[in-house]
Structures are given as C-alpha cells and as structure tokens.
C-alpha cells in the first residue's frame, strides 16, 4: 500500500490555519481513499468517510495504518478500514467502555503481577492514547517517522516488537497491556455486530461463515451434522 506524501492529516492540519479552506477540504479528503480502494464495489460504497468521535489526527492515522496492516485486502476480505475496524475502535474509545465504565478506578496503584490483571490508572481510551504516542515515539526513534508513514516491513517489525514485548516504552504504559488492548479491539472490530461500526457488511463474519444472529438450529443440528451450513450472515440491524 502506497502512502501519499501529503496525506489527509497534513491537509487537515493546514486547513485549520486557513479556515475557509477547511470546508472545501471535506470533499477533497475522500479522494485518496476512493483511489486506494481496490475493493469490490460493495466495500467501496460502504467506505464513505464516517468521521471520528475520539481519535485525533495522529491517532486516526495510526489506527488506520494498524488495521490495514493487520487486516490487508486479499481474497479473504476487504482491508481493515473497509471493514470499519477503525470506526469500531473510535466508537468504542469514545463510548462508555473507553471512558472506563465498570472499571474499578480507586488507588493506590501498583503494577502487581500479570496474574492480578489490569492495574493501570488509565481508562482504555487514555491507555490507547498513551500507547499510540509511545509507539509513534519509538517509530520516530527507530525509523525517523511515525507508524503510519513507515514501510510495510517496518510496520511488521513494530507489531512483532509490541506483541513479543521486545519494544518497551520509556515512562509509558507496559507494552504487554497496550498490545493486548490493541489486539482485542481489532478483533472486536472484525467480529462484533455491525451496529458497533465494524464488521461492515458482515464481511468479518463472512470470513469464517458465521451466520450471525439467526440461530434457530433445532432441526439443523442433525440435518447439517458434518455438512457445511449455507448461510448469509444476518445482523441485529437486519432484524430491527
């Protein structure tokens, strides 16, 4: 995947300076995305810009690059951004979960042992923010550019470093915890119901032949025992 020299983020950052240009900008930013989409028609149509509720420009660029690297377009599925995984992640971070709903947030804070689970004084959204900044800092140090502007092979190197703990963050959150959260949210964006913004067109479920929410299998159990079950996935919105 080629990265434009002058990408959407640069455009928006300059656009903020000259207020009038910003309005015209919205139309312009759609172009690189459409041009990039070597996808089947359905995916391209669904990939209309949806806007971000939490991610700032750097973070959006990071997440888009991340999900497109982890979920490349191939014969199995459209790429991560065409599945809406970036949108899923943004909405999850902006929403109650990202803000720490159900998380016990009283100190004192200690790192503890891995067997004691999550112990950071950060909501998931704060962790994401700190982790992206620390990963980008690492990328700048190692490659001179943030994650979204490095080459594919370098991105691969960074993700391996994060997932194995070979990369460590100075004064940042533990890499292990950041990576676990990052990975889990990517999976959620692929396989949760499309009402949450990811798994667009149920293309995540289609990867594995998961039928979605239709689940009246009383007669199917014997009928399809050992046989493929023909199904077109159905989601919550299809029945609402």
């Amino acid at each position: 995947m080629k990265k434009q020299e002058f990408d959407r983020r640069d455009f928006l950052k300059t656009a903020v300076v000259g207020g009038a240009a910003a309005a015209g900008g919205t139309a312009a930013i759609a172009t690189p995305e459409v041009a990039q989409a070597e996808q089947p028609a359905a995916a391209a149509e669904a990939a209309a810009p949806a806007g971000y509720a939490f991610l700032n420009l750097d973070e959006a660029a990071f997440v888009e690059a991340l999900v497109d690297h982890m979920i490349p377009a191939d014969e199995i599925s459209p790429k991560g951004t065409d599945l809406g995984v970036n949108i899923y992640i943004d909405r999850a971070l902006a929403g109650a979960w990202g803000k720490g709903e159900r998380l016990y947030m009283q100190g004192p804070w200690k790192l503890g042992s891995p067997s004691q689970g999550y112990q950071l004084p950060l909501t998931p959204a704060q962790l994401y923010r700190a982790g992206i900044a620390a990963t980008n800092a690492h990328c700048r140090k190692a490659y001179g550019k943030p994650f979204d502007r490095i080459a594919d092979a370098q991105r691969q190197e960074v993700l391996i470093g994060l997932s194995t703990g070979k990369i460590t963050f100075d004064n940042g959150p533990p890499v292990r915890v950041f990576w676990t959260t990052l990975y889990q949210t990517v999976i959620e964006g692929m396989y949760s119901d499309p009402i949450y913004g990811g798994n667009r067109n149920k293309a995540g479920w289609a990867i594995i032949g998961f039928p979605g929410i239709i689940a009246v299998h009383r007669d199917h159990v014997a009928q399809y025992r050992g046989k493929p079950f023909p199904s077109k996935p159905v989601g919550i919105a299809d029945m609402s």
């Binding site: 979960w97 720490g100 709903e101 159900r102 998380l103 016990y104 947030m105 067997s115 004691q116 689970g117 959620e188 396989y191 949760s192 119901d193 949450y196 979605g212 929410i213 689940a215 989601g235 919550i236 299809d238 029945m239 609402s240």
Partner: peptide, 26 residues
C-alpha cells in the same frame, strides 16, 4: 434481535457484577 450480541453480553458483561461498584482484591 438484541440478545444475540457477543460484544455486549460476553465481552462487556452486560448481565454481570459491575466492578466499579464492588469487587474483590486478589
């Protein structure tokens, strides 16, 4: 259709104890 939501019930624990209010230490 709403009960068939893995994210809400499995991942986000919709029917379960809210640890922000009460939990244990381990």
């Amino acid at each position: 259709p709403n009960i068939r939501d893995e994210l809400r019930y499995v991942v986000r624990h919709d029917l379960m104890q809210n640890t922000a209010r009460d939990t244990i230490t381990v």
